[in-house]
Simulated scan of single mutants.
Amino acid sequence: MSSSTRPGRWLLLLAWLSFIAEVLIIGTGGAVRLTGSGLGCSEWPLCTPESLVPTAELGIHGVIEFGNRTLTGVVGLLALAVLALTLLHLRARRELLLIASFAAGGIVIGAVAYFVAGALGAPGFVVFNAVLLLAVIAAALVTVPRIGARRDLVVLAFIVVGGVVAQALVGGITVLTGLNPFIVGFHYVSSVLLVMVASAFLVRAYEVPGPRESAAPRWVAILTYLTAIALGATLVFGVLTTANGPHSGDADVIRNGFDASLLAHIHAIPGYVLVGLLLLLAVAGVVLRLRLRRWAIALLLVIVVQVAVGVYQAREGLPPLAVGIHMVLAALSAAAMTVVVLRLRRPIASEGSFLASAAASSEIPSVAAGR
Rank of each mutant, 00 (worst) to 15 (best):
S3Q: 07
S4Q: 12
T5H: 04
R6K: 09
L13Q: 04
V23I: 14
G29R: 03
V32Y: 06
V32A: 05
R33A: 03
G38S: 07
L39F: 10
E43N: 09
P49M: 02
E50P: 00
T55E: 15
E57D: 15
L58C: 13
G59T: 09
I60S: 09
G62Y: 03
G62K: 04
R69Q: 03
G73Q: 03
G73P: 04
V74Y: 07
L78G: 02
A79P: 05
L80N: 05
L96S: 01
L98M: 11
I99M: 11
A111N: 01
Y114L: 15
G124P: 09
V127M: 11
A130H: 04
V131W: 03
V144I: 14
R150T: 00
R150F: 09
V154E: 13
L156W: 08
V160F: 01
L169S: 04
G171F: 01
G171C: 03
I173W: 11
T174V: 14
L176N: 12
G185K: 01
Y188N: 01
V189N: 02
L194E: 05
V197H: 01
A198F: 10
V203W: 07
V203M: 04
R204N: 10
P209R: 03
P211V: 13
E213Q: 15
E213I: 14
A215M: 04
A221F: 08
T224G: 09
A230F: 08
F237P: 09
T242F: 03
H247L: 15
A251F: 14
D252A: 13
I254F: 06
N256D: 15
F258C: 02
L263R: 12
I266L: 15
H267R: 07
G271Q: 07
L277Y: 03
L280T: 09
A282P: 09
A284H: 11
R293Q: 10
I297E: 07
L300W: 10
V302H: 09
V304T: 10
Q306N: 12
V307Y: 12
Y312M: 03
Q313L: 09
A314T: 13
L318W: 14
A322C: 05
I325W: 11
A331V: 06
S333I: 05
A334K: 07
A336Y: 11
V341M: 14
R343D: 05
S350R: 13
S362G: 03
P365T: 06
V367L: 14
R371E: 14
